[in-house]
Amino acid sequence: MNGFWVMLRREMAMAWGRGGGPLLALTFFVATATLLPLAVGASPARLAAVAPGSAWLALALASLLSLERLFERDYEDGTLDLLALGPVPLEAVAFAKGLAQWLTNGAPLALAAPVVAVALGADLRLVPLIFISALIGGLGLAFTGGIGAALSLGSKRGGVLIAVLVLPLFAPPVIFGAGAIEAFAGGLDWHPALGLLSAYGLAAAALGPFAMAAACRNALS
């Protein structure tokens, strides 16, 4: 267990160190959301209708950003060899990386999501649910994203490839996440959607590390 914490601490430190990842993802998130009124027009009625959904779309795109470095930097400098010979199996390493990705990228994005949605005209009543759904959804995005990141190790064009691999898998969390908010806004029961979103996140966190570890072993071999 000690090894797991060593790993998690390092991942967190590297994400926050040198002001990189999370801030960049946040800026990207806000910038994408800024393009929305520019694209569809600033009419509040029109914006408000799509605000929660667009916030979710921007969230999914923003969470792609730091995936490229998740395994790639350790692969490039040989650290992945070292991680494969550590006290805990690669599956646990992958879990630590996914968890760190969620805490350092998913969580800040979840904090920003309500702000962005409200700026686009979403109702203030929706704020808690937008935050919670973005936070829970971030878990699924981090772990499915991690699978794409590990699979594209050793490929010629990491970033775009990860997006192509991972975006179809983002369909369920986007549907459930945006669906929960929409249901709530429409006065419908939003619990099932949130439940499905949580189930997807937990399943991704439980199964994703196996796929990531298999992909890493393959890349090292």
Partner: peptide, 28 residues
């Protein structure tokens, strides 16, 4: 097992001590 390959597994922007400490703790 210690494996020391051509690459030395260091992150360029972290300090020498941070990297050494991680590697040492990771390997026991």
């Amino acid at each position: 097992v210690h494996l020391l390959g051509h690459q030395d597994c260091f992150k360029a922007t972290r300090t020498a001590w941070e990297e050494l400490l991680f590697q040492v703790q990771w390997t026991g």
